[in-house]
Nucleic acid binder design. Structure first.
Lengths: 330, 330
DNA sequence: AAAATTATTGCAAACGATTGCGAAAATGTT
DNA sequence: AACATTTTCGCAATCGTTTGCAATAATTTT
């Protein structure tokens, strides 16, 4: 079952390779008569153009690369899932490269993207990537780069991310609306810019509304730490009446603690989180959360990428507004 | 910053293209002297071979395709994550294609793999794919296919999957060991072969040990159904003392019901599941489960793929044994 | 009917790398 | 010194497609 090529079709039809090639892509130079002849035979023989030859000739592929710290993360999962759908619709394929939150691997992956002359690359950088000059070099090769989620501070690049100020503000407003008075607020790694943004917006909001709530701010790096922390606060005499979780990891630890103590939200303690949206549905009642879904972000990132591929040269920073999803836990 | 090619290197060094090409790959025909000259210049100019040209010439790529129903699934996530790591180590890239559990999309994806002359394809078929002739056609093109997880019944193909009999048997044995007497056992879609296998092994085991437990078998298609079902059974007078969940989806529904009723495992009711391993850690105590991790499966599938790429022509059916992970919920 | 247009098709050179084979140069053997 | 052998390198075809340009055939214009 040897491969059927343009050459083979041409020989069988007594036509030249170029005529066959043009006929298949409806070139106006070719008569309708030969067009149907060629197309029929191509269909019968199940002709499929050789992607490599096309890529070599045109010097670009229909593949996008996506470099992320790890696929094992609900947010990236929804992002990728959504991105792959879009890509498929537009005839692109998606190549996944995990950096394992390691800068060296990240660079290797970037190199692969360059070597394979990807049509474009989506990147969520590792938490300690600061030098993005290597990324920008791809621009010289006309490979557009869209940063998403974890974006560099550097300005002159395309970024798509959730509006962290907005998300934290919504959470604070929800807590204020429910008149919570003693709120344990658990944030993530204080080094990360995402934490800083969310924290400042969060505190800002309580001030802005003149709230007299007792807002306890804590930070943590793991589910386990959050688990311990929540247990501690729930055991105090002047018990907290609400918990805010900045991320899914924190939410998981929090809910473990609530379960072990036999408490039930929202009656015993209110819970609200910033989340991708899957985890909150694992509990009953569902957790009230501020959505930071990867789906919408992926759609936006993809649109931006298409624009870049089409030649858009200016850079843009896009942000997605979050929404409050009521689950019944607050 | 025009691309640097073999031609350019050759011109700069006053050598022929073929010599440069051979020098770069340590061909014995080339003298050490010219080798170092060529390599040095290549390094300085940051020469990178054009993948398309190589692929065209050699007619195969270093890309594996992976076709799955959906990436939004813990099992596939761990599988992909692990597979990508292996692939990267061996210099392969991984292209993800979601079928959305839709046969038409699945076929389109398969076609893409063929068009792109992938080095090989990993497939987990949709739940209603029965005709796998299209998959086998790739074999004619010397594109090896490894089926994993959801594998076809057809025998003459490479398969890697978890040992469903073994997993269900372990779960039953754990329940027997804990002397549970009234067990609600929730299985998934009864049409799927995975359900049939697990169910038969499960029932078989209770018989084999001469257990006098009252084992209630139920099947469901969704988290929500499981949620309703568990509530119903927990409200009965002669209350169940243990619940077995065949999958993560069922476990989630089950735990929701347990939470709403304010019960705590294992004292109030024992819980055991067959799971990928992430979800069980979301609760306290962690859920005891039979592990069906995608990690190990991916390593095996990849090894098998490498063998096939290297020329192994016979087919093999590999199975992974499961292990019991004690979480404290039973 | 000759000339000018237009509609079709083919030629051939790319794209960048690989590789069998032959040529030249260097070395070794009588 | 003449020949055989080995080392080192270049020629040219090839992979399958695209595309500018030339060539031929069909049609229209004068």
């Amino acid at each position: 079952m040897a491969d059927v090529t343009l050459k083979k079709l041409a020989e069988m039809l007594n036509l030249s390779i170029s005529t066959v090639s043009r006929a298949l892509k409806n070139h106006p130079d070719i008569s309708d008569e030969t067009k149907v002849k060629v197309k029929e035979l191509a269909a019968v023989l199940d002709y499929e153009p050789n992607t490599y030859a096309i890529n070599l000739r045109t010097n670009h592929s229909r593949e996008f690369g996506i470099i992320i710290p790890s696929i094992s993360n609900d947010f990236y999962q929804s992002f990728i899932s959504s991105l792959e759908e879009e890509a498929r619709i537009y005839g692109y394929a998606l190549i996944i490269l995990q950096s394992g939150n390691n800068q060296v691997t990240e660079l290797e992956n970037l190199k692969r993207c360059k070597q394979n002359r990807m049509a474009g690359v989506f990147v969520s950088i590792t938490s300690n990537t600061s030098d993005i000059s290597n990324f920008l070099k791809l621009g010289e090769q006309h490979i557009p780069i869209i940063f998403f989620d974890k974006v560099p501070a550097f300005e002159a690049c395309n970024k798509v991310c959730v509006d962290d100020y907005n998300a934290a503000t919504l959470a604070a407003e929800a807590l204020i609306a429910k008149k919570k008075k003693h709120i344990l607020s658990i944030f993530g790694n204080p080094q990360m810019s995402i934490t800083k943004k969310r924290l400042s917006a969060y505190e800002e909001t309580f001030k802005k509304y003149g709230s007299n709530a007792n807002v306890v701010i804590q930070t943590t790096n793991s589910t386990e730490e959050a688990f311990q922390m929540v247990q501690y606060y729930l055991n105090e005499k002047d018990r907290i009446d609400a918990i805010f979780c900045m991320s899914d990891e924190i939410l998981i630890g929090t809910m473990k603690a609530i379960q072990i103590m036999g408490l039930k939200p929202p009656a015993d303690v209110g819970v609200i989180a910033i989340s991708e949206g899957i985890i909150p549905t694992f509990y009953y009642p569902h957790i009230t959360y501020i959505e930071t879904s990867g789906f919408k972000l992926a759609k936006m990132a993809f649109l931006r990428m298409l624009a870049c591929v089409a030649g858009s040269s200016y850079v843009q920073e896009l942000k997605i507004e979050s929404v409050l999803i009521e689950g019944g836990s607050l």
